[in-house]
Amino acid sequence: MLEIKDLDVHYGGIHALKGISLQVDDGEIVTLIGANGAGKSTTLRTISGLKKPTAGSVLVDGRDITKMSAPNRVALGLSQVPEGRRIFTQMTVLENLELGSYRRKDGNRGKDLQEVFGRFPVLADRRKQLGGTLSGGEQQMLAMGRAMMAKPRILLLDEPSMGLAPLLVQEIFEIITEINKDGTTILLVEQNANKALQVAKRAYVMETGRIVISGDAAELMKTEDIKKAYLGG
């Protein structure tokens, strides 16, 4: 469904991604784990089109979208929940959600809104509040709800658990699993490797701009190297 091939990305003189290739199949949760600065977020930003690669390609359903603008990729079914949530703090919860469906011409927005409120009841209670007044966990839910309003086929999640209390982290990961069960393919970038490997089907491990290990998530959890480097044991 989603495939990236030999992706090279530079930030000025810094070679951030050095020939990354990965693929996400229909209906999967795939996770991308690794330390700070390994290039995980850059990979997501390149897939969503915010960052242009210097070489390599991004394909959706076999179609090369490397040159397509970020807004047009949204219309194609790619939605990213960016690192740090990036909700519109000076707009209400409802306005944030409405912006999520900005590119949709089909269907019933009212029904989708009810679906999002069903999944995140706290957003329904706070619909008139400004985004900036929400707590960190609520902002994460708003960012995810906003992305779901686009009815994406592939959801790109960048560090959804960052800065959240353990109970909330648990809740967010349960929601990720639910969203996936309802038919959305997910590419999940996480520093919380333990949780990410529990929900994912397959995983890629990144180190300094390269993918060093890949495979079945359950298998990787048992690997000694992974345990030592990423699972704190």
């Binding site: 969503s48 089109g49 915010l50 603008s69 970020a70 807004p71 047009n72 949204v74 219309a75 939605s79 990213q80 960016p82 990036r86 909700i87 519109f88 703090t89 000076q90 707009m91 306005e95 409405e98 912006l99 999520g100 900005y102 590119r103 906003r146 992305a147 686009a150």
Partner: peptide, 24 residues
């Protein structure tokens, strides 16, 4: 209006607006 909301979104966070599908 739709374009008004897009204007506010871009002025708050242009990259996030792109991720909503807004042509900045």
């Amino acid at each position: 209006t739709r374009v008004g909301k897009a204007m506010r979104a871009v002025s708050q966070d242009a990259d996030a607006a792109r991720l909503m599908g807004i042509n900045v």
